[in-house]
Amino acid sequence: MQIFVKTLTGKTITLEVEPSDTIENVKAKIQDKEGIPPDQQRLIFAGKQLEDGRTLSDYNIQKESTLHLVLR
């Protein structure tokens, strides 16, 4: 499924993921596309910060959901 990741600069990254993918996994995909190390990434969905060990389905993230990427 496709999800979108919006950065603070207003750029939107499109990722191909599975509901069973972990947040860690998603961060690795963002690193592949954008070169941002996962340890600098914070992903936010519905106002919650997403934890590395959880999966997209844990957070009920469905196709075409938009996550927000904050760098630390």
Results as ranks from 00 to 15, higher is better:
Ile3Gln: 00
Leu43Ser: 00
Leu8Trp: 13
Val17Ser: 14
Thr7Ile: 14
Gly47Ser: 14
Leu67Gly: 01
Arg54Glu: 10
Val5Tyr: 03
Leu15Glu: 00
His68Met: 12
Gln40Ile: 04
Gln31Val: 07
Asn25Ile: 11
Gly47Asn: 12
Leu15Met: 14
Asp32Pro: 03
Lys6Asn: 10
Pro38His: 12
Glu16Gln: 07
Leu67Gln: 01
Gln40Gly: 09
Asp32Glu: 05
Ile30Arg: 00
Lys33Met: 13
Val5Lys: 00
Thr14Glu: 15
Thr7Trp: 15
Asn25Lys: 07
Tyr59Asp: 02
Asp58Lys: 03
Glu64Lys: 07
Glu51Gly: 10
Lys27Thr: 03
Lys6Arg: 04
Leu67Arg: 01
Thr7Arg: 04
Ser20Lys: 06
Ile30Pro: 00
Gln49Asn: 06
Glu51Phe: 14
Thr14Ile: 15
Ile23Gln: 03
Ser20Trp: 13
Ile13Leu: 05
Thr22Ser: 15
Val5Leu: 10
Phe4Tyr: 15
Glu51Trp: 14
Gly10Asp: 06
His68Asn: 10
Leu50Thr: 05
Gly47Pro: 01
Gly10Ser: 13
Glu24Trp: 15
Thr55Gly: 04
Val70Ile: 08
Ile44Trp: 11
Thr22Gln: 11
Lys27Trp: 03
Lys63Phe: 12
Lys33Asp: 10
Leu67Ser: 01
Lys33Leu: 09
Gly53Met: 09
Thr22Val: 15
Leu43Cys: 01
Ser20Asp: 11
Ile13Asn: 02
Gln49Met: 05
Asp52Val: 08
Pro19Asn: 04
Ile36Glu: 03
Asn25Tyr: 09
Asp52Met: 13
Thr22Phe: 15
Glu24Leu: 08
Lys48Asp: 14
Ser65Gly: 10
Ser57Ile: 07
Ile3Arg: 00
Gln62Arg: 13
Thr66Phe: 07
Ile36Met: 06
Thr9Cys: 03
Thr55Lys: 07
Glu34Phe: 14
Gln49Ala: 13
Gln49Ile: 07
Gln40Leu: 04
Gly53Arg: 08
Gly47Leu: 15
Thr12Trp: 14
Ile30Phe: 03
Leu50Tyr: 01
Thr22Lys: 08
Asp32Ile: 14
Asn60Lys: 09
Val17Thr: 04
Leu56Lys: 00
Lys29Met: 11
Leu50Asn: 00
Leu69Cys: 02
Glu18Leu: 05
Lys27Met: 15
Ile30His: 00
Lys48Tyr: 12
Arg54His: 08
Ile30Met: 08
Val26Phe: 03
Gln62Asn: 11
Glu16Arg: 15
Pro19Cys: 02
Leu56Arg: 00
Ile61Pro: 01
Leu69Ser: 02
Asp39Phe: 14
Leu56Asp: 00
Glu24Arg: 12
Pro38Gln: 14
Asp58Asn: 08
Lys33Pro: 03
Leu67Trp: 01
Asn60Met: 07
Leu8Tyr: 10
Glu16Leu: 10
Glu51Met: 06
Thr66Cys: 02
Thr14Ser: 10
Lys11Trp: 15
Ile13Tyr: 11
Arg72Lys: 08
Asp58Arg: 03
Ile13Cys: 02
Leu56Pro: 01
Val26Tyr: 00
Glu16Tyr: 08
Thr14Met: 08
Thr12Gly: 08
Gly47Ile: 02
Ile13Phe: 09
Val26Pro: 00
Asn60Gln: 05
Ile30Lys: 00
Gln31Glu: 08
Asn25Ser: 07
Phe45Tyr: 14
Thr12Pro: 12
Pro19Asp: 08
Ile3Met: 09
Gln2Thr: 11
Glu51Lys: 06
Gly47Thr: 12
Ile36Gly: 03
Ile13Asp: 01
Arg54Pro: 15
Val17Leu: 11
Gln62His: 10
Glu51Arg: 14
Val17Ala: 13
Arg72Thr: 09
Glu24Tyr: 14
Asn60Ser: 06
Thr22Ala: 07
Thr7Met: 05
Gln49Leu: 06
Gln31Thr: 06
Val70Leu: 07
Lys33His: 12
Thr7Lys: 08
Arg42Cys: 03
Ala46Val: 14
Ile3Cys: 02
Leu56Tyr: 01
Thr55Arg: 07
Pro38Ser: 14
Leu43Met: 05
His68Glu: 10
Glu16Gly: 14
Ile61Arg: 00
Phe4Thr: 03
Thr66Tyr: 10
Gly47Glu: 08
Gln40Asn: 13
Ser65Arg: 03
Pro38Val: 13
Thr12Tyr: 05
Gln41Leu: 06
Ile61Phe: 02
Asp58Met: 08
Phe4Met: 04
Val70Ser: 05
Arg72Met: 09
Gln40Arg: 13
Leu69Thr: 02
Leu67Tyr: 01
Ile36Val: 15
Arg42Met: 11
Thr66Lys: 10
Gln2Val: 07
Lys11Glu: 11
Glu24Ala: 13
Leu43Pro: 01
Ala46Trp: 12
Asn25His: 07
Val70Asn: 08
Asp32Ala: 12
Phe4Leu: 07
Thr55Ala: 10
Phe45Glu: 02
Arg42Val: 10
Leu71Phe: 07
Gln40Thr: 05
Leu56Gly: 00
Ile36Asn: 10
Ser57Gln: 04
Gln41Cys: 02
Gly35Asn: 15
Gln49Glu: 10
Gln31Asn: 07
Ala46Asp: 12
Ser65Tyr: 10
Ile36Asp: 03
Glu51Val: 06
Phe4Cys: 02
Glu16Phe: 11
